[in-house]
Design a protein around this nucleic acid. Sequence first.
DNA 1: TTACTAATGAAAATGGTTATCATTATCATT
DNA 2: AATGATAATGATAACCATTTTCATTAGTAA
Lengths: 149, 149
Amino acid sequence: MPGPHKWRHRFQAHVTRWTVPREAILNLLMSRPSKHMSAKEIYASLYRMYPGIGLTTIYRTLDLLVRAGLINRFTSGDGQNMYEFKSEEKKEHHHHLTCIQCGKIIDYSDFVEEELEFIKKIEESLARKHNFKVLGHNIEFYGLCDKCK
Amino acid sequence: MPGPHKWRHRFQAHVTRWTVPREAILNLLMSRPSKHMSAKEIYASLYRMYPGIGLTTIYRTLDLLVRAGLINRFTSGDGQNMYEFKSEEKKEHHHHLTCIQCGKIIDYSDFVEEELEFIKKIEESLARKHNFKVLGHNIEFYGLCDKCK
DNA sequence: TTACTAATGAAAATGGTTATCATTATCATT
DNA sequence: AATGATAATGATAACCATTTTCATTAGTAA
């Protein structure tokens, strides 16, 4: 039986049952804010304490957490999805810098104000022009990190 | 034996031989600027005129074209890669709007000037701060299109 | 405590992409 | 134009992240 949890209620708006795997996965992601992990990495991290949790459940729970808005999903360069806990603080809004050589991912969070302004302008324009409801965005830069240059 | 081609020389800076499949694939992408196609769609489109071209070669050639800077690759919402001919005209610089419901992709190219300014600022900052050489970026919005709202 | 059924996990399936390798075709040289 | 070295091709199998299936387990309301 899983215990109480800060996010339990928010999560339960999206699913009916609060279970051990769901708590474990959410805890793991929360314990490392803005740390990117793949489904397999999460599986491996949890294996010692929860050997019973299967990869399938990891995937299903990550889907739920994304839908509940508690974590972000983004595609790393090599085709697999990465997940990270979504902080509520605006100052931690950030994007990713991916090295196309070694795959290293750097977070950056400069120009957040300007970016938000820019994004807002675009969203308004898109809504007007294409009658499109913008729900989110991905901004990502790629290139070569210091070691791979 | 493949024929002459506007991009032949540019392409050959990256590979040694100019072949029929390479010409066919490049021609197809060029004939539909800013049309997004998956490897399979390209395969299907070429099948009537070139039944001998295999999917493997499509993938390999697309890689080459991306490396040669002649086409763009981006990941569509459902995980597969999409390709489009990269126009040289700055005015055709654009990004994508993906409907998370039906998968429809809309190009938009508003605020290009502001965006380029914004991007440049970020790239400079990243280069300075992380000693990172920015080679490109992806900006993508997702949400609900008019039909799926 | 019970009963309902959502959630789980093992295994198999799926699907896009990549590796292998024998065969073919390009192109500099003859 | 013919040759030959080897880059490129294509059929097949392999790969690998993710999803589906389905029998079993466990949360929750009663």
